[in-house]
Simulated assay, not measured.
Amino acid sequence: MESTRLPYTKIDLIRYFLYLGTTGFGGPPALVSAMNRDLVTERKWISEEDYREGLALAQLAPGPLAAQLAIYLGYVHYSVIGATLAGLAFVLPSFIMVVLLGWTYRQFNGLPWMQAVFYGIGAAVIGIIAIGTHKLTAKTIGKDLLGWCVFGVSAVATIITESELIWLVLLSGGIYWFVKSPSIRAGSGMGMSFAPFFTQVLAFPTDSVLWKLALFFAKAGAFVFGSGLAIVPFLYGGVVKEYGWLNEQQFLDAVAVAMITPGPLVITVAFIGYLVAGFPGACVAALATFLPCYLFTILPAPYFKRWGKHPGVKAFVDGVTVAAIGAIAGAVVVLARRQLIDVPSVVIALATAALLYRFKKLPELSVIGGAAVVGLLLRYSS
């Protein structure tokens, strides 16, 4: 079988995504960069072409970017079972951490230490994702002038709008298609069908809180494009304004919990679900959010695998990839503006970037731990 000749097994795949889900801080920019570094450059489990196809699909489909990329990379060699294992392994560690934090939050009526820890970690994360994005950008774009133009426009648009613009991503793919594959004619026998669908059946009364949670978070997972950051305004409008499940402070604490825990940022839905309806609420919120993005990844995946080597599709994917990286770079600036609020936080971010640039093998987790301690010392010594 082909799988026996692969450089990794399903167990290796599970171990890696459990590790990334346990130690991967920084949200989509850091996690996307980490998968490229670990799986493409260092381990060589995934080809650069497969990675780009996965990043393009994750960018085009609604749902959390990093989780969809993990699912697609699991699909590359092990089909649906690999996608399922990779997705579960990636999400499970942060889900467990968030549920435990939710229990602690309810027991002690808030987490006063959270903001102190987040202060240090948040600043360090800016340095981490800045270095990761720099490496990913240099590797992907190289000396491609068109690529740098698309990258710059995407980055600036993200900084100005503070969101990822799906129409700009599609336009970038179209520009690359037109410039890089001018000889490809429309109707050249190629056809990609994107007909993913999502149905949810839950055995709860339709007027129960769990049913309402399921429907709301399924809508969040199915209709919100962009990274985990893009889902935050949508969640705020529903959780705080429409349903009144949480107050303003509780919602901000939920976002902070997602930021100080590793794994996908969108795991904040489990914390919200826990505060609303306990452990069942956390499970329903997480399942309803991630199931659509799982389906939106594995259903189109065969078409990406089948047509990804076609020159026209390859050019389109390259354009989407460059636009996605530009959006990630723009997101770094957006995050930095919100997180680097004073001189100490700027120093922590710059020191983190300098350390990681100078010492290539320095474990990011040790930097995160050191930053958390610095944050606590700064907060409680003042």
Rank of each mutant, 00 (worst) to 15 (best):
L65C: 09
V40G: 04
A203D: 15
F194W: 10
G152W: 10
T41C: 10
F225T: 15
F316N: 00
A58M: 01
F290E: 04
P182R: 11
I272S: 04
W307I: 02
L275Y: 03
T140L: 13
P7V: 08
G21W: 02
L57M: 01
L299P: 01
L85H: 07
A116Y: 10
A214V: 01
P292W: 08
M1W: 13
T161F: 10
A195E: 04
A324T: 15
V317W: 05
Y236S: 06
I272C: 14
A155S: 05
A256T: 13
Y243I: 02
Y380D: 05
R306D: 08
F194Q: 07
R338Y: 15
S33K: 02
F216M: 13
V317K: 02
L55F: 00
A83L: 10
L165T: 09
V169A: 02
V117K: 01
A89M: 05
S381W: 13
F234I: 06
V232T: 02
L65N: 12
G221D: 05
T199P: 04
G228H: 01
I141M: 10
Y380G: 00
A58G: 03
I128N: 05
P196L: 10
L378C: 06
F217V: 00
A220R: 01
V169L: 12
G21K: 00
A67W: 04
L60F: 03
S163P: 08
A372N: 07
A138S: 10
G221V: 00
T22K: 01
A301N: 04
A254L: 14
L60K: 00
S172Q: 03
Y16F: 14
A86G: 09
V374Y: 05
V99M: 13
I129L: 15
T22E: 02
G228L: 02
A285D: 06
I272G: 06
S227I: 10
R15Q: 12
T199L: 10
K360T: 03
F194K: 06
L356I: 02
L365I: 05
K361W: 03
V98N: 15
A324L: 12
A371V: 10
F118V: 06
A371Q: 07
E364K: 04
K44D: 09
I46M: 00
I298G: 08
K219W: 08
P28L: 02
T84L: 12
P28W: 01
A123W: 01
F95H: 14
K360S: 03
R379Y: 11
A222D: 07
V40N: 06
S381C: 12
G147S: 11
A220Q: 10
G189R: 14
M192V: 15
